[in-house]
Design a protein around this nucleic acid. Structure first.
Length: 145
DNA sequence: TAGGCCATCTGGTCCT
DNA sequence: AGGACCAGATGGCCTA
């Protein structure tokens, strides 16, 4: 079994946010409390929302500001797109499908992060932040080896 | 009851 | 032209 697998197995039975103190021994031993520390570290990052917004690259003028402002800033002509009720309904269906697949991806990610015993389902933002912590932890761990 | 989370609708922008 | 993507608005549900 690989490192990730053993980690998942180990963490599986542990309440992620209410863990016993980290054991002093065992160099390089994985303990979920390591994640806990990093998790709250990330959660409390100031300006995290701005960072999130700024990650949207390559599509200037899209959503970073209210729609009207964006339209005025993006030197384009404001083409008003006429849309029928039928087209609007079709777009709604597509959007629902898109969000559904997005949530499927979040569910897959929830399965990958070691929080099986977490009593409450992780929210999407918690899932993302925990995944970041998990990945950076594993990356650091591999570097040490 | 307030706050967090989520689903849905909607309109703007980008891309093919 | 139309689909994909995105963010804002809104309302419902749940929990502390």
């Amino acid at each position: 079994m690989d490192v990730e697998g053993s980690l998942l197995e180990y963490v599986g039975d542990v309440h992620f946010l209410d863990l016993p103190p980290k054991p002093a021994a065992k160099l390089n031993a994985l303990h979920p409390s390591d994640f806990r520390g990093r998790y709250f570290e990330i959660i409390s990052i100031p300006g995290a929302e701005e960072a999130t917004r700024s990650t949207q690259i390559g599509r200037p003028g899209t959503g970073n500001s209210p729609a009207l402002a964006a339209a005025s800033l993006s030197g384009r002509s404001k083409r008003k797109r006429v849309i029928t009720t039928v087209q609007r309904q079709a777009a709604n269906v597509r959007e629902r499908r898109r969000m559904f697949s997005l949530n499927e991806a979040f569910d897959e990610l929830r399965k990958k992060v070691p929080t099986f015993a977490y009593e409450k389902r992780l929210s999407r933002i918690e899932t993302l932040r925990l995944a970041i912590v998990y990945i950076s932890f594993m990356t650091d761990l591999l570097k040490e080896k």
